[in-house]
């Protein structure tokens, strides 16, 4: 068969199939993330102090700049401000909220870094960098990041 013949095949020659790639990760949390998610189960958020005194939230096991092991977990607030965000107009399966929402970096009060989470808001016009947001806790916490159901705009029902 010649190439022109082969490539002249109409699109019905082209096969398609659904392909799902799944990884059933079963992860150990370690001493720092384990404490973080355990605290979430108790509706408390923990950060960790790095070697320069900044509070990193979510906490990490090693200093992001020096690599030194970190040991001083500290409690941070359940409200903070948006440092960056993006609107998700079309929700996909598996996303934390099944309505259009913002994905945002949120610096919690008492922390010096930002946490990635979702903000339940009526539309992109109601979201802004610098806006205050507060945690809405899941009804039945399990010890996971999803114990924070989402953030909502502070001072206004969203």
């Amino acid at each position: 068969m010649a190439a022109d013949e082969m490539d002249g095949a109409d699109s019905s020659e082209l096969l398609r199939a659904p392909l799902v790639i799944e990884y059933p990760f079963n992860r150990t949390t370690g001493p720092v993330v384990g404490a973080f998610v355990t605290a979430l189960r108790n509706r408390t958020v923990l950060g960790i102090r790095d070697t320069s005194g900044r509070v990193v939230c979510p906490p990490v096991e090693y200093d992001p700049r020096t690599g030194a092991p970190l040991e001083e977990l500290v409690e941070v607030g359940d409200a903070g401000e948006i440092t960056s965000w993006s609107w998700v107009p079309e929700v996909r399966e598996g996303q934390p909220l099944q309505t259009p929402h913002a994905l945002a970096l949120i610096r919690l009060d008492g922390a010096d870094t930002s946490l990635l989470h979702v903000v339940d808001a009526p539309g992109p016009d109601s979201v802004a960098t610098g806006a205050r947001v507060r945690i809405r806790w899941a009804d039945e916490p399990t010890g996971a990041i999803t114990d924070i159901e989402c953030f909502e705009l502070d001072g206004g029902a969203s």
Partner: peptide, 27 residues
């Protein structure tokens, strides 16, 4: 690893593992 100091009471049943399935669906 060093065991971090925790400022709040985490109880006697700390989370040690999580099942985190990841899935990608292609056509």
């Amino acid at each position: 690893q060093p065991v971090p100091s925790v400022p709040v009471d985490l109880g006697d049943d700390p989370v040690q593992r999580q099942v985190v399935p990841a899935s990608m669906r292609y056509d």
